[in-house]
Computed example of a mutant assay.
Amino acid sequence: MLLLVVGVGLNLVQLAELLSRVPPVVQRLGTFESPVHLPIWLNVALGLGAVPAGMERALRLRHFPLLDAAGR
């Protein structure tokens, strides 16, 4: 679960920085500077680690209060 949260979280922050450089987004919202800058090999490793972690979570259908609080 930790690998899933860290992998997805760090990649989403970096994706937000990338998307905030698109000209229409810059005009409306401004730019976003990511506080985390990881090397490409670590981004790929985190992404590849998050995939099986997410699959394991989905296939076992385990309940975790922090992740499942929105479903209440």
Rank of each mutant, 00 (worst) to 15 (best):
L4K: 03
L4D: 07
L10A: 11
N11W: 10
H37G: 06
E17C: 00
R57V: 01
V5D: 01
T31K: 14
E56D: 10
L59H: 09
W41T: 12
H63W: 14
P52M: 04
I40D: 14
R60W: 07
A50Y: 13
L19D: 01
G47E: 10
V6W: 08
L59P: 03
H63D: 02
L46A: 06
E17L: 00
V26M: 01
V25Y: 03
R72I: 07
A58E: 08
G54F: 08
L19V: 14
L29G: 00
L59E: 09
L3I: 14
L42G: 00
L46G: 10
E56N: 13
M1P: 13
L46I: 10
L67K: 07
A45L: 11
L61W: 10
A50Q: 13
A70N: 07
G71K: 11
Q27D: 14
A69S: 12
V26T: 13
L59W: 15
L46E: 11
L10R: 09
A70E: 10
T31F: 06
P35L: 01
E56P: 02
P23G: 02
P65E: 03
V8R: 07
G54I: 02
R21H: 15
A69C: 04
P24L: 04
M1W: 08
L19N: 01
L3A: 13
L46C: 09
I40F: 14
L15N: 03
G7I: 04
G54E: 00
L15G: 01
L59T: 10
R72D: 09
